[in-house]
Design a protein around this nucleic acid. Sequence first.
DNA 1: CCTTGCTTCTGTAGTCGCTACAGGATGCAT
DNA 2: ATGCATCCTGTAGCGACTACAGAAGCAAGG
Lengths: 129, 129
Amino acid sequence: MHPIGEVARRSGVTIETIRYYEREGVVPLPDRSASGRRLYDSAGIARLRFVKRCRDLGFPIEDIRALLALSKGDSKACSDVKLIGERHLRDVRDKIADLTRLEAALADLVAECDEQRPHCPVLRQLFAD
Amino acid sequence: MHPIGEVARRSGVTIETIRYYEREGVVPLPDRSASGRRLYDSAGIARLRFVKRCRDLGFPIEDIRALLALSKGDSKACSDVKLIGERHLRDVRDKIADLTRLEAALADLVAECDEQRPHCPVLRQLFAD
DNA sequence: CCTTGCTTCTGTAGTCGCTACAGGATGCAT
DNA sequence: ATGCATCCTGTAGCGACTACAGAAGCAAGG
């Protein structure tokens, strides 16, 4: 059984975030020592690693909750995981598309400022009706 | 002079967000009617439109504050606007790059789930050491 | 004038996912 | 015992909103 500091180092999740995940019910309450310190077994560490990887992939907490539930062994797991993954992939692709459009608009706008001018074309455009 | 509801419709910024911007000092305090209702002139409406456009382009509030200050007429305005714009453009490009990497990792992962399996390869990978 | 329905006000709290204290207790090595 | 590191709970804050609750104001219609 391992204290939270060691678990933080081994999982890559900060102590404060581990406590946050516990409060939010993302991970179960760990065992405690006689003095009240959190003690995690290897399954607890693996679970936090899982959560970290999912967060790194941009899955929201709610999806991670669902994935963890699915990981508890059920014959439909893989197709459900695929549903969650594909929806998230779509979200990511949408976001990339949005940002790409935004980038183009911004690049055009910024290109109009190329010297010191009393009447900035960018500001004029942003103020236009 | 126009009440907040009309200004919200004409600027595209919600009533609540207008009040938020006022609280945050993004836009100046408007005049008030005898009964305390906010009244905006055309400059106030233009300013909110400006803020909306900047938000749509992803500029953070702090940058918008700076841009509004610059719009008050100063001979260095355009080069300062360019600095703010280019920095933001870099941020957007960084974010696109991050998301593109994430999308690739996610697409690979999701591709591994293609039928009902008791032992999902995705979950296994996310749990791997 | 009264009623009705809509608009507007202030203050407070919440969203998401953390992150950072403050103040106190515990654990371990010297 | 001392000193330092670790850990605890509770609270507040970040950015940019968003959504009430409860009350007051406004304008049109009867």
